[in-house]
Design a protein around this nucleic acid. Structure first.
Lengths: 329, 329
DNA sequence: AAATTATCTGAAATCGATTTCAGAATCAAA
DNA sequence: TTTGATTCTGAAATCGATTTCAGATAATTT
């Protein structure tokens, strides 16, 4: 409630001097500094952040756009970001696009209206051409997902490598009839992963049946669905590379229900290494993504870009992926 | 980049009129209104939100304080809140106290410094006496957790009832030697739940062994730990009411490893009805909390309080809990 | 002693919007 | 025709801080 003027009045000094005390400027007489601090204390004065934002043209706020906070992948990512943001003195605004283009664009407006100093895009619903116009209002970086055409900093994993090592693992286990979930999508990350899958298959002279290529799905229910479709096939695959641990879990759960043994009758590889991967029986062999590291690095880079108002040098960081072997393969 | 002045200059009108157009005030000549809109469009003008905040003494931002976003309970809660906040035109600032008192207090400062219009406390690390001073700076409501002494609006579940029905269910299944996890804690929610447990036990003339009362734990590892401790006992309980689904999952997983059959040798009841409850084998009998509803109602109430600047009438809402029976009992 | 530098202070401008207030023009009612 | 209401407009004040600029005083250096 109290303003800087009231503090000034109470001390008989000017608002300028009070401001200097608040901001630890040099050249303030020590007696007066103490007087100001005392008055601030007594009045319960706290600087009004709206005024500071306006004058300073800075919000100390960063937005992160994700597609679903309930997805453990994103909640871990956001968790890491929130920690770093706090350490660096920034607030984090959570923006959930819910896989919706318009919502994503609406959230990007935050940068235009100066509600945030920068935006981390951890999910990408729009094409680069629709996002690009926003870059002139402040720093935007991609984290996890990316666009091939985008000239913007990005922190991500080598998804092609992920697809490759997962598939290779199945091949080494002796599988030749391998299904894949995560096909028909315009998301670069998905395309990369699929390319890795196909690369491994090709390298071993294995062909891929069209009917074994499932589109991108996310939930447990989708996994159950996929299993049923495979189960109904004449020529069943003996292994599947699922797009995520939840899908993998759904497949495994449904397989059990149909007395189809995992991994003997059907081997399953997941993605993300989420807690459930280690929880269900059998444990899911999966590709671990360094979510903490990705979130941390993205936030560090964002703060760095804001602080140094550095001309957006197109910078990319690619983090390692790892195969975690459990009992589902 | 463009300001309201530039728009005014371009149209030959005053900033006042431009402002009227922006805010849909009546009494603006239609020709001029169109002229202004055109100029805004051409200049790519968007109102600066810091200026609006300062002048309007409103931030259109709400903070939610939770203890861990990676906990599915909270991510679902936040998910629901984010949705409603967006619908009502508010931004959501995510504050993760990480179970730390100081972090929680630091986040409450957001209200003091006018960075947010209100705060939803979905986790409570401090005592009411330390939180109360902040209430004079704006609306604060509790969601999920609460404090007995607190005179503040709260949306929560009847945890005592939850503890009661879970325990009663075990008793009805014929168990008399029932352990409980979630004991030594100063959190009201935990105390309530435990009271429900004890009430059910008393009603059936069952006594509770001290060594069967475990403190509050959260993770899978804690669950494993609890199982091992029970397993090592002379007099083993035949059932346990775990504080959460993760703990329950840990117990079940470890039980399997020791060839202890669930539910025959050990029945397990969880809490929250998280996805894993349905995923692991056997499925976990658990108490379902209406997280979506709780988040939704909390956000609606918060927006309502902000909009109507209503004197904080102490209002509480208690939402229903439900027993979900699966194979672990 | 004069010149220079370092330390300290406040008036006024500024950030970019909204609101108040007063006044002008138009229209309707008495 | 006068009065009153309705519609429209802009100058200036305001929100609450920070920054610029200029000036005063004290301390150092020549």
């Amino acid at each position: 409630m109290a303003t800087i003027k009231e503090v000034a009045a109470r001390t008989g000094l000017s608002p300028t001097t009070v401001s200097r005390v608040i901001n630890n400027h040099p050249y303030v007489d020590d007696t007066k500094r103490k007087k100001v601090l005392k008055a601030m204390e007594e009045l319960g004065y706290v600087p009004n952040s709206s005024a500071r934002r306006l004058r300073g043209q800075k919000t100390n706020t960063i937005a992160v756009i994700i597609s679903r906070i309930v997805n453990p992948f994103f909640s871990h990512l956001v968790d890491a970001m929130e920690l770093i943001a706090g350490e660096k003195g920034y607030q984090l605004i959570l923006c959930d696009s819910r896989l919706n283009k318009e919502r994503e664009l609406a959230h990007l407006e935050l940068l235009k209206t100066k509600q945030v100093d920068g935006i981390i895009l951890a999910s990408l619903q729009n094409e680069w051409k629709d996002i690009e116009p926003f870059t002139k209002y402040g720093p935007i970086i991609c984290c996890n997902e990316y666009d091939k055409n985008a000239q913007m900093p990005v922190i991500r994993c080598d998804q092609q490598y992920g697809g490759y090592i997962g598939t290779k693992h199945l091949i080494e286990k002796g599988h030749t009839k391998i299904a894949y979930s995560g096909g028909a999508d315009r998301i670069q990350l998905t395309l990369d992963r699929r390319m890795g899958f196909l690369k491994a298959m090709n390298e071993h002279g294995l062909s891929v049946k069209d009917e074994w290529m499932f589109p991108s799905y996310y939930g447990i229910e989708d996994g159950k669905n996929i299993f049923q479709r495979m189960y109904a096939m004449e020529d069943r695959p003996t292994a599947i590379f699922a797009g995520g641990d939840e899908v993998a879990a759904g497949i495994i759960q449904e397989a059990k229900r149909f007395h189809c043994r995992v991994p003997d009758d059907l081997a399953v590889v997941g993605y993300d290494n989420q807690p459930i991967a280690d929880l269900i029986d059998p444990g899911i062999t999966t590709i671990e993504q360094p979510m903490k590291l990705m979130g941390t690095r993205a936030m560090e880079m964002m703060v760095d870009m804001i602080k140094h108002k550095r001309k957006v040098v197109y910078k990319k960081e690619i983090l390692p992926l790892q195969l975690v072997i459990r009992q589902s393969t």
